[in-house]
Simulated scan of single mutants.
Amino acid sequence: MIYKRCEAQPFKDSKKMPVDFVKLQAPTDLWAFQTMDRKPIQYMNRLFRPSLTTTEVGFPKYWTSKVSDNEKGFYHKIDLVRGRHELCNSLWKYYHGHNACSFTLNECFDALEKLCLDVGEDAFQFVVNHLEIGVFFQVNFDLIQKVRMTYKNSAFDAMKKSKSREVYGWRLQLTQFEIKLYDVRAKQRLAKEVIDAPVGSYRFEIKYYDKKILRKMGVKVTEDLFIGECPLFIHWQNVVQTIVFELFPDIPSGLKTSDIKNLCLYLSDGFEEFQRIVKQKPSGKTDLARVKDSVERNRMLLDGKINLKELLLEAFNSSLLLCGKKYT
Rank of each mutant, 00 (worst) to 15 (best):
K163L: 11
F137S: 11
V147R: 01
V119F: 10
F271W: 14
T222Y: 04
W236K: 07
K325C: 13
Y94N: 09
M149C: 15
R171P: 00
T257N: 13
D287W: 03
G284S: 07
G304C: 08
D293E: 15
D118Q: 13
R297Q: 13
W170R: 09
R5A: 12
L47P: 02
L312K: 04
R299S: 09
S65Q: 06
Y208T: 00
D29K: 09
S162Q: 12
K256T: 09
E205W: 04
M159C: 13
W92G: 03
P40H: 11
A315E: 06
D13S: 09
K261E: 12
F136M: 01
G58L: 04
L267P: 01
K292N: 15
F177Y: 15
L143A: 04
P18I: 00
E56Q: 14
R148A: 11
D224Q: 08
K305D: 07
L311Q: 06
A123R: 03
A197H: 04
Q145N: 15
N307K: 01
Y202T: 00
A26P: 01
K12W: 09
K39L: 08
F248C: 02
V67H: 11
D157T: 08
L313G: 04
K39A: 15
F156M: 12
N45E: 14
L320I: 13
L181A: 02
V19R: 02
T257K: 10
H85K: 08
K61N: 04
K211N: 07
D122E: 11
S268R: 06
F233M: 02
C6W: 05
T242C: 12
T328D: 14
K279Q: 13
K23V: 14
E223L: 09
Q34K: 14
W31S: 15
H98S: 10
G304Y: 01
H85A: 08
A315D: 01
S164T: 07
H130Q: 08
K256S: 10
H85V: 09
K216T: 13
W63N: 02
Q42C: 15
T104R: 13
I243H: 06
M36F: 04
D210L: 03
S68W: 06
Y327F: 11
E229H: 14
L288E: 02
R290D: 07
N262E: 02
R38C: 14
F124G: 02
S201D: 01
D224E: 08
V221P: 00
K216M: 10
